[in-house]
């Protein structure tokens, strides 16, 4: 586990499915940074300003209207991408992916999950970021294919600003993930989950072996209260 500072003892998972929140765990930052990168590189300068402003507003929107559920903020962020072309989004996403691989990766986390994968653990990744960003990231890291993330809706190859259902990143998305797990007969009591934000709480509390990785303040508080293992990866 390299330089990880285990606040609580972490036992290597045995047999159970491993659920991993991608952003915050495998790399620093979240989906909103990716969205902001896209917005900051829109074709026209005025678009850049408006889109960035909209994405910037997602935090107060989430605080005041979201009632702790990041779902609304997530939808708000991606609404800011309305009008961007599929070409631009995909090309810029490739750029951003390179940036993350170069500067933002938590290498220790990647090594840890690669080891679990090599040991044959079923792994399910989930993310509130865009599929077009996260899926190639996982492929490049050779971490796995099962991913639940967000997909933008396009009309005439222009982003409508809407996300296709089920929208991940909020409670509803995690509920849908858990429902899918139950349908496939997964034993959540034996499952492990690694999350980084308070928004992941819904999933963490549903599995037998939750773990907070580089948690935000709210998740840190909850993890401490519930005596969950807490990992700090550089």
């Amino acid at each position: 586990m390299g330089k990880a500072k285990a606040v609580a003892t972490l036992k290597a998972p045995r047999r159970g499915t491993v659920y991993i929140k991608v952003e915050g765990t495998l790399f620093k930052g979240g989906g909103w940074q990716h969205a902001a990168y896209l917005a900051a590189n829109a074709q026209s300068f005025s678009d850049r300003v408006f889109k960035l402003a909209q994405i910037g507003l997602s935090m107060p929107v989430s605080l005041f209207l979201g009632q702790g559920d990041p779902d609304l903020a997530n939808r708000w962020i991606y609404a800011g991408l309305k009008g961007l072309s599929r070409d631009r989004i995909e090309v810029l996403t490739e750029e951003y992916l390179e940036k993350v691989l170069k500067e933002g990766l938590r290498r220790d986390a990647v090594d840890f999950f690669l080891k679990l994968r090599a040991e044959g653990h079923p792994m399910v990744f989930f993310s509130g970021a865009l599929d077009g960003f996260i899926r190639p990231l996982l492929q490049r890291l050779q971490l796995g294919e099962e991913l639940h993330s967000n997909r933008l809706e396009y009309k005439n190859d222009l982003a409508t600003g809407r996300l296709l259902e089920p929208v991940m990143g909020g409670y509803a998305g995690l509920q849908s993930l858990l429902a899918s797990a139950e349908r496939s007969g997964a034993d959540l009591a034996k499952a492990y989950a690694y999350g980084s934000e308070h928004g992941d709480f819904f999933l963490l509390r549903a599995v037998g072996h939750p773990c907070a990785v580089n948690p935000d303040l709210r998740l840190l508080r909850v993890a401490r209260e519930l005596n969950w293992p807490i990992l700090e990866w550089d």
Binding site: Q43, D87, V91, D157
Partner: peptide, 16 residues
């Protein structure tokens, strides 16, 4: 519009 977009992105890749 797509041609313009793609040429912009191609120039961007070069100038980067």
């Amino acid at each position: 519009d797509r041609m313009l977009e793609l040429l912009n992105l191609a120039h961007r890749a070069h100038w980067r």
